[in-house]
Design a protein around this nucleic acid. Sequence first.
DNA 1: GATTTTCTTGACCAAATGGTCAAGTCTGGA
DNA 2: TCCAGACTTGACCATTTGGTCAAGAAAATC
Lengths: 231, 231
Amino acid sequence: MLGKPTRKPAARNQVASDGNANGPAGAIRRRNVEKILKAAESVFAKKGFAGASTAEIARKAGVPKANLHYYFRTKQELYASVLDAILEVWLDALDQEIQPEADPATALSNYIARKMAASQRSPEPSRLWAIEVIGGGRHVQPFLRNRLRRLVKEKTTVIEGWIAAGKLKPVNPTHLLFMIWAMTQTYADFAAQIAAVLDKKSLDDAVFATGSETIRSLILNGLGARQKIRL
Amino acid sequence: MLGKPTRKPAARNQVASDGNANGPAGAIRRRNVEKILKAAESVFAKKGFAGASTAEIARKAGVPKANLHYYFRTKQELYASVLDAILEVWLDALDQEIQPEADPATALSNYIARKMAASQRSPEPSRLWAIEVIGGGRHVQPFLRNRLRRLVKEKTTVIEGWIAAGKLKPVNPTHLLFMIWAMTQTYADFAAQIAAVLDKKSLDDAVFATGSETIRSLILNGLGARQKIRL
DNA sequence: GATTTTCTTGACCAAATGGTCAAGTCTGGA
DNA sequence: TCCAGACTTGACCATTTGGTCAAGAAAATC
């Protein structure tokens, strides 16, 4: 999926048939891999690839460092695995909400709501993603240039259809997506700054509600999308 | 300015009177400090504080590592100095463009244009800023909670005045600023992603022009700000 | 219950890291 | 010309880093 995630087998010793993703077989492995991935996500999201140490990740995961290296041979491989898990989620919301037959105002509203919910519920993937891209995105370049690009092209066609149908004011649909990503993810990536400006310790529900509403109103008014009033 | 930038003197050996910011005295020092700061900004912006090595910064600056440590005793101190230089620029545009007597459409347009120009001309400060805030913003917390918060409060009052005068649709002015920052800075921070999606090697003038126009139209239409047509 | 496979972990290593130091060179003023 | 202070730099050091290893514990398989 990524550049060169797992050169050889995923770990030094691997269950013969990796296929059974559930069931009792490999339960220990799965549990530990999950613990490590979660810890890694958090540490990478805070310090980036270079700044994170496998020792810290292992400590956070509650396993000895040697055990971490039993499941993930190198830091690179661990990093790639973490990114890989994030990428899937990334595309999901976009793909599901932006559909030709949908009402633009509703679709955009829903998409914004989902992205905001993600920023609130689990900001760390967004932060790790940001750090990776800021650093040049070497590890995700293939993903960006293939899957993401393809999906964006598909979705911009949908948006162009909406514009052609007179449902939206003319806008560059690709940049429109950039803007939605930027606005929604800023509540995850820049949470520290937002909290500081608002004189809060952390972002609460009210902040996310106001944020959602602000984005929605800018986008929908900005595009002249008439919202169907529903009770 | 920052948390604890320069505990003692700025460097081990300092010119007696640090006041003369120009003139031939201390010319060597100034030249070298500048070289190092520039290199540091670039490396920190790519790898964050933990990931950057003083050796790499020194190499990039073209000085031996020991020389770097002559001007900046610790990596911390160097990092603080780099951030310090960035902070000043950060506030400038906001302060200058958002003024009570200004026409809202023009003021917002100009502000967006300046932020976009900054993202294009020198993306690295924006990236370093982002990495720092994503990491929790420990080093800039005092700045965020004091100077930035104060300025934001002042400027949101201006925007509220515009709204009260019926020049803008109602909007949460603080979040409006968050949105403008997010949208304009995404062209610096996420340049790699944008370039990949657009199938370009790097962002050219056209991309920034389209981006500016997209932001402007979303904000101005979104807020119902009537633009005075000028020739 | 025996045997094979997976998992666990303390001890270890080479490389890289931030930072120091002392011995030098350069520069500007008296 | 001399000299004090500013600057330069190779060599060095303690610590941290990613990663290995071997010996054993625990599970799974038969």
